[in-house]
Amino acid sequence: MSTNGRILSVNNLSVSFVRWGQEVQALQSVSFEVTKGEWLILVGPNGSGKSTLLNVLSARLDPNQGEIQLNGRTIGDMSAQDMAENAFYVHQNPLLSAAPTLTLYENLLVSDIHSHHRSEKKAQLLEKYTALLEPLGLSGRMKQPAKTLSGGERMLLGLTIARLRPGSLILLDEPFASLDPGKLELCLKSISDLNALGKTIIQVSHDPEVATTLGTRTLVLNQGQLSLDVSGTKRSTIDIQAHWYTTTEKSSVHV
């Protein structure tokens, strides 16, 4: 597209909502751009606006102000169908990352654009899905409903679904929450595979270590504002946690 490899541009984004009679400013004038193939870690303390930003990016929440361009088109003007073809959101709660009463096969089938166009036969699809689930240890459970999977397994299923989606932008809300070490490793591998396939990833985390060791770029959100944006090798030298705690304390003086 005519955007020189830019997949996402967020311009002066503000979101506020009324909670219990009080206005909460969740995001304040947030602007940034994302290039195709980046793996962005969005980090910040609880309530900093990470999930709100992800909700706006996935068109599940309308901003009060500002504009987001996804693949050169304004998100507000895109239909749900367009949105689904350009971006995919993996829910924070792994229990919501798939349809629980559908089998793994059906979950993958309904997510797979190739099955819709009937460009692949059932045997081919089955073979493809088996190959995807094999490394996750789930290929033997193709005919079982997704609700029989554990939380960690469902997160892996959600990431496999993301891989089958046509959209080049994948939004992940705290994918590592409540995973055991083994699942964590598989989950990490799945995400880096997605990135290697050319998908752009925006991953929300509240873990400062994740923010400096994973991905290609780190954005720090603090009280609804972007307070840091670093990429490359510089990231490992930054003490993100110290950064956000200082700003929180500073602002608390004014309250």
Partner: peptide, 17 residues
């Protein structure tokens, strides 16, 4: 299957278009 997805997990269904 799409109908059942809409029933089983509406939010997931929406994210699939």
């Amino acid at each position: 299957i799409r109908l059942r997805t809409a029933g089983s997990n509406p939010e997931f269904a929406r994210s699939l278009g």
